[in-house]
Amino acid sequence: MTAYVVFTRDRTRDAAEMAAYSPGAKASFAGREMGRLAAYGECETLEGPPIEGAVILSFPTMEAARDWYNSPEYTEARKHRHLGADYRAFITEGV
């Protein structure tokens, strides 16, 4: 069953770290079956505190999503994201 990785960015703290994150994050998708459904387009918060942006990725299964998130390539890239901004992230199974 399709799984979705959802990131919401609450606040950017260091733009240089975010710039360092982007190439590594993109490279971590190589050879993986995934789709990018949304990536920092216009966003309207309906409930809760406002966010700066959101990303939604699709993977064929929860296992595939976890494998990508925990891969050495993405583990290295996300260090920059953690230094650069405050995010919330989760994986959810589709219907």
Rank of each mutant, 00 (worst) to 15 (best):
Y74E: 07
H82I: 01
N70Y: 13
S58F: 14
L83D: 04
G94L: 07
Y87Q: 03
L83K: 12
G84S: 02
A89F: 14
P72K: 11
K79H: 05
E63S: 14
R78S: 06
R78V: 09
A89E: 06
P72L: 14
A85N: 01
D86G: 09
T61I: 09
E73W: 05
R78H: 00
E76A: 15
Y69W: 11
R88L: 02
R81Y: 00
K79G: 01
Y69R: 12
Y69H: 07
R78T: 06
Y87A: 00
W68A: 05
Y87S: 01
P60H: 09
Y74F: 14
S58K: 14
L57I: 12
H80E: 02
P72E: 13
S58E: 15
H82F: 03
H82G: 01
T75E: 01
P60G: 13
L83V: 00
F59M: 11
E63C: 11
S58C: 15
Y69D: 02
I56Q: 10
D67A: 15
F59D: 09
A77S: 10
W68P: 10
R78P: 00
Y69I: 04
G84P: 01
H82A: 05
D67Q: 07
H80A: 10
H82E: 07
T61Q: 07
R66K: 14
Y87E: 07
W68C: 11
R66N: 08
F59G: 11
A65W: 02
S58Q: 15
E63T: 15
A65M: 06
A89H: 03
A65I: 09
T75V: 14
F59Y: 09
A77E: 05
E76D: 11
W68S: 06
Y69A: 09
A89Y: 09
E63M: 11
Y69Q: 02
G84N: 08
A65E: 09
P72M: 12
A65V: 09
A77G: 05
T92L: 12
T75C: 03
G94W: 05
S58H: 14
E76M: 03
F90G: 12
P72H: 13
G94R: 10
E63N: 12
R66M: 11
D67T: 10
A65K: 05
E73K: 03
H82P: 00
P60V: 13
T61A: 05
Y69L: 12
N70P: 00
R88Y: 00
Y69S: 02
P72F: 10
G84Q: 04
T75H: 00
Y87D: 07
T75G: 00
L83S: 08
S71R: 07
Y74A: 02
G94F: 09
H82M: 04
G84F: 02
R88W: 01
N70H: 13
R78A: 00
Y74I: 02
H82S: 06
E93R: 05
G84T: 03
K79T: 04
T92M: 09
I56Y: 04
P72S: 15
E93T: 03
H80F: 08
L57R: 08
R66Y: 08
P72W: 08
I91M: 03
G94D: 11
S58P: 13
T92G: 05
K79C: 00
R88T: 08
S71G: 12
T75M: 08
P72C: 13
R88H: 09
R78I: 04
L57S: 11
T61S: 14
G84Y: 02
N70V: 01
R66C: 07
P60Q: 06
